[in-house]
Nucleic acid binder design. Sequence first.
DNA 1: ATGACTTGGTGGACTAGACCACTTATAGAA
DNA 2: TTCTATAAGTGGTCTAGTCCACCAAGTCAT
Lengths: 247, 247
Amino acid sequence: MNLTLDRISSVPLYAQIHGEIRRQIEANQLRAGAAVPSERELAEICKVSRMTARQALNALKNEGFVYQERGIGTFVAKRKLDVHTRNLIGFTEEMRGRGLTPSTKILLARREKAAQEVAQELGIETEDEVFHFQRLRLADDSPLAFEDAFLPVKHFPDLDTKNLENESLYKILETDYGVAMRRAEEILEATCASKEIARALAIKPKSALLIVHRVVFSESNLAVESVRTFYRADRYRATFVLTKNAV
Amino acid sequence: MNLTLDRISSVPLYAQIHGEIRRQIEANQLRAGAAVPSERELAEICKVSRMTARQALNALKNEGFVYQERGIGTFVAKRKLDVHTRNLIGFTEEMRGRGLTPSTKILLARREKAAQEVAQELGIETEDEVFHFQRLRLADDSPLAFEDAFLPVKHFPDLDTKNLENESLYKILETDYGVAMRRAEEILEATCASKEIARALAIKPKSALLIVHRVVFSESNLAVESVRTFYRADRYRATFVLTKNAV
DNA sequence: ATGACTTGGTGGACTAGACCACTTATAGAA
DNA sequence: TTCTATAAGTGGTCTAGTCCACCAAGTCAT
């Protein structure tokens, strides 16, 4: 276990430790079942206090990368299902993580008055304007999902002039508007494809679709986006890791 | 904000604080947007150190109940979607949380040799035995889901003699075998109902179904259960809260 | 050989501080 | 009146400990 920390960096020490161990697990340098340094050992290695080392291990535990047993130690957890931790990331990052090449075709991009449901989800008034984007999402140049997204105009002026086809939306929000994502609420449901969506996704009508309805919140708890994504069920499965007592 | 802690109890102080604030939020005594006591205030109120108060607030933040802004304070988060936090709970608890009355009809309960996929998911050998349960799950006496579950025999001897129709499986595992759930991996996908499942769920063939494939792990990282649940899409939607940096 | 006890290591909980970057309100100077 | 510096409060990070329950392995007496 070699771990060198950058004490000048603005990245917190616990985040550096967490990131390095996670990287080693994902690179299979630390294999499933292998012991991770104990909290005291890790603190000694990194020259930090035990609480800091503990914070790093705790994050790994909450993400399902390791498990801890009192009196025994900390170990790398086995992944049983093919879980690409569905963290709070955008389509672009998710597809790259799965080893696919994402691309996007914009079908609609306009401003409009917020419909009541959308206004309520975004915490704005119905007379407020929203950007309405409809996008066809492709993976390796083949249709994967149809997306219907709404964002409040007042927080993101000129968003419609940005390069949405090639840049990740979440990255634009962060770099151009300084708004970082922090939390999302999701509802997943199954349905059968309507004729319009079936045509857009190049599948037969009544094929199964997975609908992911997501409302995304920023660090300061602004509702940033309300989006419904209609995934082709034959090409997409959503994966999650649940933990009890995420303390 | 009144908060009385039981210092004799084996429940950790941070968990008591967390539970009490969560209860107040869920009972709407703390409304969306309302300020929660600051970390230092909370520590003062409860006569604990700031780190302990912080741990309680951190858990609430990770669950999406509150958000924190540096320099400002801690506030109750608005729920936009109708999110019943899909924590790591069983069918029985989940339905009760949604205000429905759960019931179960056992269609199959037997021991068998583990199929290869199941053995791999549970981390056992193919010659090992598993319990194989098929259950029809009802909510308010109407079919909601069909469930196909596998559990390793060696960890739960005589499980098939327990009262599975009326008791929560997870509760039995905890009280009778001392095995508490800690983590689960889930894959969600959409499909169309086969004839058999359609008949069991009293829907038309080719209706949409939501399949939740879950592998559950105990505190000591034993794979405890591998289960596929086929939900009627017209009666069930899965909800999640995602957070970035669950530290 | 077997069983009881000790020892050292582990994670879990908790304390009482520290410094930092950030925000807001306020008091004083222009 | 307007601007600016300051002070107080907030969450974020970090330290250097403490005590506890638990587990494994070795020791020692039976």
